[in-house]
Simulated scan of single mutants.
Amino acid sequence: MFEIDALRLLVAVAETGSFTKAAVRLSYTQSAVSRRIATLEQQAGGPLFERLPRGVRLNPAGRALHRHALDVLDRLSRAERELAVLHAGHGGLLQVGAFATANISLVPAALRALQEARPEVEIVAVEGPTDTLMRRLSDGSLDLAVVSDYPSGLPSADGVTTTELCDDELLVALRRGHRLAEAETVDLGELHDEAWLQGAYGDRPTMLADACARAGFTPRKVIRIAEWTGKFGYVAAGLGVALVPSLAAWAVPDELVLRPLTDRALHRTVHVALPVTPLSAALALRDLLRAARQVRRPHRDHLH
């Protein structure tokens, strides 16, 4: 195991070409430099320098170790700078997670505002289901996550706190020529003959199944499509209808309209999740998410 100070000394000797000059640069005595280089060469398994009449220069083994030493020292320097700005409450790396529909408009709007306010913050964004995001917050690999209580409630995680961000109403997506496209609100019972677009994975209970049961029917046909773009395509083609969270309204194409439902139980709650000791940038992003939700409304054209 090479010591960091020894690697710094190797670089200094290589740059100055002299044990004496390296000693002056690092405030060592020449004898201390000679001893430490001898120890380093012993650890490396052989000589690292060619001894010349005037000074020294790296041999092939020395050049190989020198290359790695520069990389290690550069990484350490970057780590020191990152830690300094983190402890000062400025900059650094911010790892953010969100579920899919939060990434359509809400999270991007807040991240853009954060970049404008704090350009020194480096943002890493990931997407995943709520249970995965909560685990990643708990193990320290995320600094903030936007999560949802759908479909099975908000999971708990050690060392994670959550605060409610907004209520996310579910709307029904219809093609513009649909007989109910101009209705103020839609009762699910009026859609009992429709095919429904749902997610590709049907092993969990869904709001749709519960809501249809409350309305007194079972969907006659369910078409399972994984991505929102595919669901929208099927609805636009008149092949079915779909429930769409209001957070996803910004991605709805012009061929569709979104109508409110009479069943007010069709909603989910969105939360911001943070570690118990959050970063300053994470707290700033939490506040920007609140502001973004207040201004990010669905396109009016889709609601009329």
Score class of each variant (00 low, 15 high):
T269E: 08
D301R: 14
T206M: 01
A265F: 06
D187I: 00
V96R: 02
N59I: 00
R175E: 15
G55D: 08
R8E: 14
L170S: 07
V252P: 05
T161G: 10
E127T: 15
G17K: 10
L180Q: 11
L40G: 02
H304I: 14
R296D: 12
L208C: 03
A249E: 02
R296N: 13
T39H: 15
I225R: 06
L243T: 06
T161W: 08
P253Q: 07
V33T: 01
L165C: 06
T163R: 15
Q43Y: 08
T269G: 00
R296K: 11
S141P: 03
A69E: 08
E3V: 03
E164H: 09
P155M: 11
V126M: 09
D263P: 09
L283P: 02
G240C: 06
L93Q: 12
A23E: 06
L26E: 03
L208I: 09
R268F: 06
L76N: 07
Y28M: 14
L261K: 12
S152R: 12
P205K: 08
G55K: 03
V235Q: 04
S148Y: 01
H304E: 15
A98R: 04
L239M: 13
E116G: 12
A281F: 09
L171W: 11
A64V: 12
G92A: 04
L76K: 07
L58K: 02
H192L: 03
A282L: 03
L303A: 07
L142E: 00
H267Y: 14
K221F: 01
S18G: 08
L208D: 02
A209T: 13
E190H: 11
L279I: 07
K221A: 12
G153Q: 06
A226V: 02
E190W: 13
Y201T: 13
H302L: 14
R112E: 15
D193K: 10
A236G: 09
C212Q: 03
F217V: 01
L239D: 09
L142M: 09
L266R: 03
V24Y: 11
T20Y: 12
E255K: 11
R136A: 07
A181W: 03
T185D: 11
L111R: 07
D263R: 05
P119R: 07
L239F: 10
A125S: 13
R135F: 10
E169T: 13
A181G: 07
S280L: 05
P119N: 06
R176P: 10
A69L: 06
P219H: 10
P155V: 05
L170D: 10
L258C: 04
P151L: 02
E15A: 13
P260M: 08
E80P: 03
V244Q: 02
L174I: 08
P47V: 05
L10E: 03
L70K: 12
A100G: 06
S18D: 12
R175M: 04
R112Q: 13
R268Q: 13
D131K: 14
L239A: 14
A88C: 02
L70S: 01
R296M: 15
R136M: 15
A61I: 05
L86A: 10
L52M: 11
V252Y: 00
E164Q: 09
Y28C: 04
V252Q: 10
I223W: 00
D71Q: 15
A22Y: 01
L52I: 01
A183D: 14
H271S: 10
R63E: 14
T185I: 01
T132G: 08
D301F: 10
A32P: 02
I223A: 04
T262G: 01
R179F: 04
